[in-house]
């Protein structure tokens, strides 16, 4: 497939590029086609090229030394990936592996060439910065979700454990009575009193529990179990 400057305009980072810029980019790039399940690059490879996917689908994944993998994102046509080498002058390596989910073709642009273009064309650099900040914000949101989810699950699990071992079904309170304070729960979960209080207040507002002096009543065991198991509420 012949790629035209007009095609490249669809790439976020190239949206303000001139036709002249885009022709230069095309002249300094090669097309690479990879079969389904193949790799454009592996984590740790020299980041010599940045890529623009022109067809197919690619997943970016990272693995830890034990081989556990995390999918970072999925790249669709006309999205850029592996652009790290552009901003690092030398010795940059890809922080993730790019594997195709179907037969895919991408334009491989020399990182060093792209860097030299950006030095004289701030609009390209700014668009790349916009893309990068969007990624950072996305990651921050995911990090926040992961961090808070964990505490939420921990506290819910602690309450369920306590209920299972010491809970008393109270008809008067229409729930399961626990004789523990917020401080007890904070200590059990290695969390802070502030965090536990915030969570318990939120659950109380939703009607899952009721709190009193040195006591917590589980009103909706089902909802608490769903939280503890990390299922949707």
């Amino acid at each position: 497939m012949e790629i035209s400057p007009k095609d490249l305009k669809q790439v976020v980072v190239f949206q303000h590029a001139t036709d002249e810029d885009l022709n230069l980019i095309l002249q300094n790039s090669i097309t690479r086609s990879i079969e389904e399940g193949g790799f454009f690059f592996h984590q740790g490879d020299d980041a010599k090229y940045m890529y623009v996917l022109t067809s197919g689908q690619v997943k970016l994944m990272q693995s830890n030394p034990n081989g556990q993998q995390v999918n970072l994102r999925t790249i669709a046509a006309w999205q850029m990936f592996g652009a790290l080498g552009v901003t690092h002058s030398n010795g940059a390596t890809y922080p993730a592996t790019a594997q195709t989910l179907e037969d895919s073709t991408a334009l491989a642009i020399q990182s060093s060439f792209m860097r030299s273009m950006m030095e004289t064309r701030p609009y390209l650099a700014f668009d790349l910065m916009n893309l990068m900040t969007a990624y950072i914000q996305e990651m921050q949101a995911r990090y926040r979700e992961l961090a808070t989810e964990k505490v939420e699950q921990k506290v819910a699990n602690a309450l369920i454990r306590l209920a299972g071992q010491t809970g008393i079904k109270s008809d008067k309170e229409a729930g399961i009575l626990l004789s523990f304070s917020r401080q007890d729960v904070a200590e059990m979960t290695g969390s802070t009193l502030y965090t536990v209080s915030r969570l318990l207040s939120e659950w109380e507002r939703q009607g899952f529990i009721k709190t009193g002096r040195e006591k917590i009543t589980i009103l909706k065991p089902h909802d608490l179990v769903r939280i503890a198991d990390g299922l949707e509420k």
């Binding site: 369920i160 454990r161 209920a163 179990v225």
Partner: peptide, 20 residues
């Protein structure tokens, strides 16, 4: 329902299940 294997199953009656 999530009753099988639930750690709080001893606190729920069949009536609670129907309600929940």
């Amino acid at each position: 329902t999530d009753c099988v294997g639930c750690r709080l199953a001893r606190f729920c009656t069949m009536e609670d299940v129907i309600k929940t």
